[in-house]
């Protein structure tokens, strides 16, 4: 197929940028979206131009590194897939595809489609862990966790931190990410003890990073590759409100 592309190009952080048009021949339906970009970069290298930079790592939908705004939707047109799991069979010969980086004040563009998501790392550093040294792995049955609880914690832990929730939110809120990271720990016996401190510290860091407020539009859940439920946000709010009411901010 022949594909027309309009891609955001930007030379440096905080620098000016704009959409640049390319046309790529010989795209096959079996190519992944990122392989299509690789092919385009091959053409650019041949011409001696600077390649288009974009984030990726595992290319199997588990690391959360890739993330592009494709035709105005986070991770493209398919529901609940990462950019690396999107394939060119989702497009038609002659299509024009707009590709932009995920946008938010907290996610500055470093170059082209590559953004700085270290704000997420700093949120995790502020409380997304268990403070006690746990030593080596204990006997599995020494701390009993009910099956449903384990499943619920896993549902939250499935968040890969790609940032699509922020990118698609009209408020650029990181509520879905932060809720997944607080809830998955606070559901489990080891993480429960520090739950009030954790939720307060992580929400404070989220606000300090200039993510916006959540207004429950639920766009994040629609675009999330891992289908993290917005009910986690409600659960985080509950933990947060409760800790405030009881004066246990940590």
């Amino acid at each position: 197929m022949k594909i027309h592309l309009k891609i955001w190009r930007q030379d440096e952080r905080d620098g000016p940028g704009g959409m640049v048009s390319y046309t790529l021949d010989d795209v096959t339906e079996d190519m992944s979206f990122l392989e299509m970009l690789d092919a385009l970069n091959g053409v650019l290298i041949g011409k001696g131009e600077r390649v288009i930079e974009f984030d990726h790592d595992c290319r199997e939908g588990i690391c959360g590194q890739c993330g592009l705004m494709i035709n105005g939707r986070a991770h493209g047109p398919l529901p609940h897939v990462t950019t690396c799991q999107l394939h060119m069979r989702s497009f038609r010969d002659g299509d024009t595809i707009y590709i932009e980086p995920f946008r938010a004040a907290a996610f500055p563009v470093l170059r082209d489609l590559k953004i700085d998501r270290s704000a997420f790392d700093r949120i995790i550093q502020s409380g997304g862990y268990i403070a006690a040294g746990t030593g080596s792995a204990p006997e599995a049955n020494s701390i009993l966790v009910a099956h449903d609880t384990a499943e619920a914690a896993f549902d939250a832990a499935a968040c890969i931190g790609c940032g699509a929730c922020v990118a698609t939110c009209k408020n650029s809120s990181a509520a879905l990410f932060v809720s997944a990271k607080t809830v998955h720990l606070s559901l489990l016996p080891q993480g429960k003890l520090e739950a009030p401190q954790r939720v307060n510290a992580m929400i404070a860091q989220m606000n300090a990073e200039q993510f916006g407020p959540c207004s429950n539009t639920e766009a994040c859940e629609v675009e999330c590759p891992q289908q993290i439920s917005v009910l986690h946000i409600a659960r985080m709010n509950w933990a947060f409100n409760k800790s405030r009411l009881l004066g246990r901010k940590g």
């Binding site: 309009k6 035709n71 916006g212």
Partner: peptide, 16 residues
């Protein structure tokens, strides 16, 4: 303030 620079091509309204 949190939104920064918007998108050139924006179809986010499909998800809410």
């Amino acid at each position: 303030k949190a939104s920064g620079r918007g998108y050139v091509y924006d179809k986010r309204k499909a998800s809410s």
